Amino acid sequence: MPPPRRLRLDDPNASGLLCGHHPSHLSPARRWATQALRSTPCASRPLVAALAELHANALAHTASGLPGGRVRIEIERCPALFLLKVTDDGPRPGTQAPALPEVIHHPETATGGGFAAEGGYGLALVESMALYWDFVGDPGEALTVRAAFARSGHIRDHNR
Rank of each mutant, 00 (worst) to 15 (best):
A58C: 07
A130M: 01
H106L: 15
L17V: 08
P12C: 08
G153V: 09
A33W: 08
L59D: 08
E53P: 05
T40H: 05
V145G: 01
G112T: 13
R70L: 07
C19T: 15
N57L: 02
A50L: 01
A50E: 01
K85F: 12
R146P: 00
R8N: 11
L83D: 07
A33Y: 09
H154W: 09
P98K: 00
M129L: 13
E118K: 13
S152F: 02
A99S: 15
F82R: 04
I75M: 03
W133Y: 05
T40M: 07
R6C: 10
I73L: 14
A43W: 12
R45M: 05
V145N: 04
N13V: 04
H21E: 02
R6W: 04
C78D: 12
T95Y: 03
P93H: 04
D138A: 14
T111G: 14
P91D: 10
L100I: 02
S44W: 03
C19N: 09
H106P: 09
V126T: 02
A150C: 07
T34E: 13
A29W: 02
L47M: 09
S152W: 03
A56P: 02
G90R: 02
F149P: 01
G137S: 03
S15Y: 03
G140C: 05
Q96N: 12
V86N: 00
G114K: 13
P12K: 12
L123M: 04
G140D: 09
N13W: 11
C19W: 04
A60E: 02
I75W: 04
L9G: 08
L83S: 10
H158P: 10
K85M: 13
A43H: 02
C19S: 15
A29M: 10
S128Q: 00
G112S: 06
A110K: 14
E141T: 05
R151V: 05
S44V: 04
P46V: 03
R8L: 13
F82Y: 14
A117H: 15
H105V: 15
T95L: 13
T87C: 10
E76L: 08
A14W: 00
M1R: 07
Q35S: 11
L47S: 07
A49V: 15
P101F: 01
H22C: 10
I73N: 09
A142R: 06
P12M: 11
T40L: 07
S44N: 06
H55R: 00
A33M: 07
G68S: 02
G153W: 01
F135S: 01
G119W: 07
C42G: 12
H25S: 15
G65R: 00
M129V: 09
E141C: 04
G90E: 06
G119V: 08
G153E: 03
G122H: 06
A148C: 10
G16A: 11
W32G: 07
G94E: 14
L125I: 00
M129G: 02
R92K: 14
K85E: 10
A99R: 15
